[in-house]
């Protein structure tokens, strides 16, 4: 049986990688000296990129980066689930299938044949899917990539014995709070902020550019209204589809928005 609470002493933690760019693991490796402090408070049992290798020992918390995209992944995620108290999916790949989820709309086998001269040697599933498609996920941190503060907030919450929280509101709320001029209102730039989940701190508008949705859909996202607004700004229907079909293309809200536009 898996434990449902975090070990009161020094919790055992694993970081697992599936199909990904490794960028969310960097949220740990870029913590700087905080990484050494963290290592005193938790027991890092498995984290291949950082060194510790022990995927089989039971842990209190498993962080999972990446999407499920090979036959072997299907078994591995079950194994991890069975050996972990809490399973936390981190980043766009683990929560929505990631940018490689774009292949779900295409013919994956044809792509393999076009890229590799020995396609029979490439084990790749037709679809790239989030962790929650396969096992129970206790908590999700969205973002491409997730940030160090997001990771630390989750770990601190667990160490303090409280339920971690994540901001499901829209990027617009962060943007307003920072006092950035709205790029859509002032410059007519097609910004995804009104439908995108907060958490980054409105980085793109801080540079005067459009949000491109890398944190995935926000709660109660009105994609219909935004698609109409993008049309008013001069985007073609195909260009609007591309706005929803990028880093988090398989997130249900973005996929539905794109399908609706494609259906005309």
């Amino acid at each position: 049986m898996s434990q449902q609470t975090v070990h009161p002493g020094k919790p055992r933690v694993a970081v697992h990688k599936f199909s990904s760019c490794d960028g969310c693991q960097l949220s740990f490796l870029n913590l700087g000296e905080a990484l050494l402090t963290l290592a005193e408070r938790i027991d890092l049992v498995h984290f291949a990129e950082a060194g510790p290798l022990d995927p089989d020992t039971g842990v209190d918390v498993a962080f999972v980066e990446g999407s499920v995209s090979t036959p072997e992944d299907l078994e591995r995620i079950q194994h991890i689930r069975a050996h972990s108290g809490l399973l936390i999916a981190i980043g766009a790949c683990a929560t929505s299938g990631g940018i490689q989820g774009l292949r779900n709309q295409a013919k994956g086998a044809e792509w393999v044949a076009q890229i590799y001269s020995h396609p029979e040697a490439i084990a790749s599933l037709e679809h790239s899917t989030p962790i929650s498609c396969h096992v129970k996920v206790d908590f999700e941190l969205w973002g491409c990539p997730v940030s160090g503060p997001q990771i630390l907030a989750v770990i601190n919450a667990l160490l303090l014995g409280v339920t971690p929280r994540d901001n499901t509101d829209k990027v617009c709320t962060e943007c307003k709070r920072q006092g950035y001029p709205c790029v859509m209102v002032t410059h007519g730039i097609a910004c995804m902020g009104p439908v995108t989940r907060a958490g980054c701190g409105a980085l793109c508008p801080s540079l005067g550019r459009d949000c491109y949705g890398c944190y995935g859909p926000a709660e109660n996202a009105n994609t219909d209204a935004l698609a109409i607004q993008f049309g008013h700004l001069g985007l073609t229907p195909a260009a609007i589809v591309r706005r929803f079909q990028s880093i988090n293309s398989q997130a249900p809200v973005f996929l539905a928005a794109a399908d609706k536009l494609r259906a005309g």
């Binding site: 760019c21 490794d22 090979t70 491109y212 990028s246």
Partner: peptide, 28 residues
């Protein structure tokens, strides 16, 4: 490492999208 098919899904993309997409090849 499972193949991620970047070159294939860049096809049809507008040039303005390329810097944000190719970044995702490597987080480092």
């Amino acid at each position: 490492e499972p193949p991620r098919f970047f070159e294939k899904f860049l096809e049809g993309r507008h040039y303005t999208e390329i810097p944000d997409m190719v970044a995702r090849i490597c987080g480092i």
